[in-house]
Write a protein that binds this DNA or RNA. Sequence first.
RNA 1: GCCACCGUGGCUUAGCGGUAUAGCACCUCAUUGGUAAUGAGGAGGUCGCGAGUUCAAAUCUCGCCGGUGGCUCCA
Length: 673
Amino acid sequence: MALINITLPDGTINEYASGITCAEVVTDVLGRKHGCLAANVDGTQRDMSYQIEQSCSVEGILSDSDEGIHILRHSAAHLLAQAVMELYPDAKPTIGPAIDRGFYYDFAMDPIAESDLKPIQKKMQELARKNFTVERVDLTDEELQQHFADNPYKLEIINDKIEDGGGSTIYKQGEWYDLCLGPHVPNTSRLMFCKLTSVSSAYWRGDQEREQLVRIYGIVEPTKDAMKATLHRMEEAKKRDHRKLGKDLQLFHIDEEVGQGLILWTPRGSIIRQELQDFISSHLRRQGYSQVFTPHVGKLDLYRTSGHFPYYQDSQYPPLVERDLMKKLADDGCTCSELSNLMKTGDIDGYMLKPMNCPHHVKIYASQARSYRDLPLRLAEFGTVYRWEQSGEISGMTRVRGFTQDDAHLFVTEDQIAQEVLGCIELVQIIFDKLGMTDYRVRVGLRDPDSTKYVGEPEGWDKAEKACRDAAESLGVEWSEEQGEAAFYGPKIDFVVKDVIGREWQLGTVQVDYNLPERFDLSYKGNDGEMHRPVMIHRAPFGSMERFCGVLIEHFAGKFPTWLTPTQCHIITISERHKEYAHEVAKLLRENDVRVLVDDGDDTIGKKIRNHRKLQPAYMIILGDGEEESRTVSLRARNGDQVAGISLDDFIVQINEEIADKVSIPSLAVNED
RNA sequence: GCCACCGUGGCUUAGCGGUAUAGCACCUCAUUGGUAAUGAGGAGGUCGCGAGUUCAAAUCUCGCCGGUGGCUCCA
């Protein structure tokens, strides 16, 4: 028998007989209890049963590695399908991949309820315990057709994805088998710790026009402890959900009578928003932006010119038509669809809630003759826009129908693009740094070189794309280039963050735009005396105040830094005779721009502390005889730390410093170990 | 929009065919208390909205409104 050399991760080379399996190699190296699920053979993932014929490198894949957990999840999806097929023989399995947080499997079957998951999960555990060997089998094209003859979904995949004559593989465990490339765990006992989390619907191949499938989600962990830890993490995440905290902390309210996805900022939430806006504004002024204000509506014609009305109608609130015109049309017997047609063709006009601020800003640019000396012209506005999101998409503050962008439009010459894009990015960096937000990724959307849908000249695009890349690079965080992800009018940079349950949300965006200046026929006179077309940069570094605050609530888990905390100090009296001093302290703090709240009620001190904790003030100030006599305050921090006897004057100085510096964690009363 | 689940006073929640349960918050009284619940009392709900079934509906049925999770991270 031929001998082969196998290189191990540490560089040593062992000699084995050709045909040895991955499992045997790994066992030989790591011992019987190696815990590997599969192996990398020359960098390619293989099953443990894979027979090695030639010299190569081999590395075991452990269940707690990224690769390992992925395999575990994928195998758990198979186990789920096996369980569902035993309980619902008429179901047709379709696809079941591993995903970032677990796995899912889609079935063509009658809808099931969440309560049906328990029995399925039980069946999975039962099957896992039977410890089926998971076996890879090579099949020819004909055999594949036979094996999946009763499953049109699998046949579609076979026909679409598998080259003729190539055949493919299935994985078998017991009687059940599935079309799959693998690799998979060697046996089902590895899948003991599974939990099905939810059931929902999905369309076959994500296409709304196609069959609706039942999707079952689950999570799997290699050990009982790992499962416990994951479940605990999920519980903790729930506690910092901005929708829960928004209610607890009285930051915002959504009222069904006002409308879905429309945020009412309560007094406490408004303070946070206002502080953020002030912060952003101060940096905008430094960067040479001009603040503007524009109304919430504009004429339909404006949006015909910009292209919003014809192209994005489905995601806009329906247009507003003047009352007299409406009446006249009604008297003439005009139907709704006729009205809609008349608006589309431009035969009648109306108004629209603005879906974007750019057309208004463009009109400010165009209100004067511009010369190259005016550029770059940077127009900024906290502009509120309205979009008709699908009802099922709406969620808390992160997906809404009315929101305020920290918007700006920069009108620049082509030569200025790079520098201005960089300026936009710098602003994001300054503010993210201040807020301690480091967990975000940057996506640079570039044009698809093979497509012709893009407006503008290729040379301009090259420059703009380079500007976006360079800007992203300058941030020093994870960023990726995505070809074909550019808007048709220019490349862009997006900032993406995750919420507590791991969903990704796009916050800010910087977009270079050759299109709108064209559509609105914008121009400026260059130093050559000729007329030129400016380029626009759209940028909303935080996306919307709503989404940004939602993400921020979760980022801080409701424990905002002092400068953002709605009520920074809650003053608590020990007894009734300290009332006067408490109000004196409150008055003094207010005069020094500190936001305070006084509780001079007759609850006990313990009770008051307990109650006030719910609102997460930066500090509680406890006032009793001692404090009053010495004109001091005693502080209690959020973590329970206490400092007594700080002179009132010192405290005012210190808290004002803390507020001015925008430190992320209130630290005045925190004892250092 | 589509699928599943959910909707009881400001918040959390019991009840799931005989006109509603508790805690917190709120108000009153007593207590004047030193760092995560002092005691007693009180007020507050047409059980999301509308229809239907029934002698009787928070409870069953249907429609609507709203919320939650999900709707390609592809065999």
